[in-house]
Design a protein around this nucleic acid. Structure first.
Lengths: 258, 258
DNA sequence: ACCTGAACACCGTTCAAGT
DNA sequence: ACCTGAACACCGTTCAAGT
């Protein structure tokens, strides 16, 4: 499945008028799709509705995206890009290596807390039956973004090792640490937004739990300074207000509404 | 959506001939569905194909399950039941509280390694758009099974606290530990079976990584005896061969084939 | 060269007719 | 009382016709 339009847009120097218009329309389509998703849920997201919302025909949508799944994958790419920005800021945060790594985790959970529909997209994209229908090009694009975002976290781990905050022996399993927190956050994310009543199961709010569990996990790896030598609550509050004021605001706004 | 048949089967003392036949047919349907899923993947699982495989009409399938999602959810329930059996054995394993808790984790990852399609079902069921279409009764059934399986793990944590293997202060967040490993395993499971080339991302095989990360996590919580005082590889091998010979065999068989 | 929307294929679900 | 399968609704995808 080739998308005629994407070839044009992706041309290295993008900027003929036509190309700008196409790129703009693609954003319009994605915005509309996100809107429908946000307001009516995934079951309501159909190509007909998207076409109607953007006031183009379905054929035109298919000039931009080779399939519905391709479109949803593009939404995911936008989210990952947002996360890359947040992670980059977190990695450059002034503080210990451990604080910066923790800041990445906080960013991840707050972002998805602020944009629950995004979390669902990510989840849907991971299903094999869905993944099969995404064009190779789009999939490659997403995977390269995932590479980059992992790299950001991995770099902080490597830094911690080289400055002695983490034991030298950790070096061969540096990516194990990243995978550990990634899977923990990802899993928690899905378990939370799946309408499973976590409270009924006896679990307290996810963001806090993730924070605590991350600290214990990093303690287990002996990432200095240990949480027993730190005021963890203060650290959480400082990081989240220093770095993620936007997300906090969105989350609070939603809380007020409900 | 009511399922006429389920009322009959669920009658408290099940055993008229008719009821037995119905229960048997329900198993047949589920077996067939699982087969299609296993051999052709989720995209091939349609109600038509299931009906054809069991040699009943679609209407009859709908007498057993109120929707396709309901059927898939039933498959999930079967899996959770299998897991409950494994977890129960793990919790009764002869060894320290930490070994028994670890054994539960190993069981989880080996089960899903041995039955990858099951992992995908679980994943699909967690999507909200899918969940909406499951009958309340079936959803309640699954949630009660989830309750039970969590309880098994939670009991081991509580035991560890009361016998001093875990610090007394852990008590109020006992379920935090369970949630931590649950989310870590669940997240890793999805990330692994989503065709993301974890190797390319620099990650080593998931089961080992999960094992290592679990140990570090439990170390962080100071669950005695610490992994630094233990031969972890030997422990992993002992537990998996003592408890999970079946799963290991299935996994090895698959490896040989490919 | 690009856009359109009717037409098609597929699939989940229902229900009137049959036994 | 139970089973059947034709009929329906919905939705993703295509492509001949139009500009």
């Amino acid at each position: 499945m080739e998308c005629p339009v994407s070839k044009l847009i992706k041309a290295i120097a993008p900027v003929s008028r036509k190309q700008r218009e196409l790129a703009q329309r693609e954003e319009l389509i994605l915005d509309s799709a996100q809107n429908i998703l946000h307001e009516q849920g995934y079951s309501y997201l159909t190509m007909d509705r998207v076409a109607e919302a953007v006031e183009y025909s379905k054929g035109t949508i298919y000039n931009h995206f080779s399939s519905k799944e391709d479109m949803v994958c593009s939404l995911c790419c936008r989210s990952i890009n947002n996360l890359i920005n947040m992670f980059t800021r977190a990695a450059e945060y002034k503080g210990t290596s451990r604080e910066r790594f923790s800041a990445i985790g906080i960013g991840y959970s707050l972002y998805h807390q602020a944009h629950p529909m995004t979390a669902q997209n990510v989840q849907i994209i991971k299903i094999n039956a869905v993944r099969e229908k995404i064009s190779d090009a789009k999939l490659a694009e997403m995977e390269s973004l995932e590479q980059r975002i992992i790299e950001i976290a991995l770099d902080v781990v490597k830094e911690a090792i080289s400055c002695g905050d983490l034991p030298k022996e950790t070096s061969p399993i540096a990516n194990g640490i990243v995978f550990g927190v990634w899977s923990m956050y990802f899993g928690a994310l899905i378990l939370e937004h799946s309408d499973i009543p976590l409270q009924d199961l006896g679990f307290s709010p996810t963001v806090q739990l993730l924070w605590l569990n991350t600290q214990k996990f990093l303690d287990g790896y002996n990432w200095l300074p240990l949480s027993s030598d730190t005021d963890n609550e203060a650290m959480f509050n400082k990081i989240s207000s220093d770095l993620y004021a936007n997300e906090i605001e969105i989350i609070n706004k939603r809380k007020k509404q409900s």
